[in-house]
Amino acid sequence: MSNDIFVITEHMDGKFSDVSFEMVGKAKELANAWGGQSVSIVVGSGISSDGFASDSTIQVDDETLNRFNPEAYGKVIEALVKEKSPRLVMFGWSATGMDLAAWLSARLGKPCVAYVKGINIEGGALIVNSQIYGGKMMADVSPEGDMAIVAVLAGSFPVEAGQGSTAATQIASPVLLDGLKIKFVEAIKPAAGDVDITAQTKLVSIGRGIGSKDNVELAEELAKKIGATVSSSRPVVDAGWLPRTRQVGKSGLKVKPKLYLMLGISGAPEHLEGMKGAELIIAINTDKKAPIFNVAHYGSTADLFEVAEAMLELL
């Protein structure tokens, strides 16, 4: 067992995600405190991986790993972790990390913490801070045993601390990658044809509180009056009330408009990830404890339908 910290970095089309750098920065700090090494792990094919600030970077290079494949990536990471026995393995709580962190935890019988916002060492022990229940609760937990796995929410740590110039060491895959049950077929590009919400300066964004598909019209009328476009949180899209091209958040699009007027959105961490950089955030939600009020500049717990209708009369 070592005191090393593994960061499982993530990339798409040769570019690493911000959370990769965020984790590397945090890993360096923790490794220093523990007297271990921070190790960036890159799984892929032909990627330039010399931009991390970690003590070392291991790049597992194989043509089979060219595209994300949870089975292949999982096997490679499991083999590396078993061989090196790090103290902590860090994933992003992202489309890729979410496929791997809990899986690895169950495979190895080691504890896992998801939705991670903070990691500290107190008296040599790991204390992990997790944002659960849709952002309504923060839990401090201590993983038992000699190895822990965490899945970190993007935006939890500074990006800059993870940027550096450590030269990556390329290795071949530590496991055979034939006979995989999962095969990558093709990439899916964002649907074209609809309005691009990332290019809009004003968005009226609706959430579950809008209640039904019929009520979307009210938001559209309001948006039209102020020259805005209607966007939404994920449940609205999942319910089929708006197309997926309008979804803001982790699994949707990241937006940074001048105005983000929110009707009936509670502000789960996944949604905040996509809009917290908006210049003016106004939130209307009847739940006075909705996490969105900790992020919005202005808010109201009034009835969103009454407010929207009254605004239409005034505009």
Partner: peptide, 17 residues
């Protein structure tokens, strides 16, 4: 594989609308 719960609380509010 277990976690020991240390604390559960609503988030500390740094800013409010």
């Amino acid at each position: 594989a277990r976690l020991t719960m240390k604390k559960m609380a609503p988030p500390v509010v740094t800013g409010h609308a």
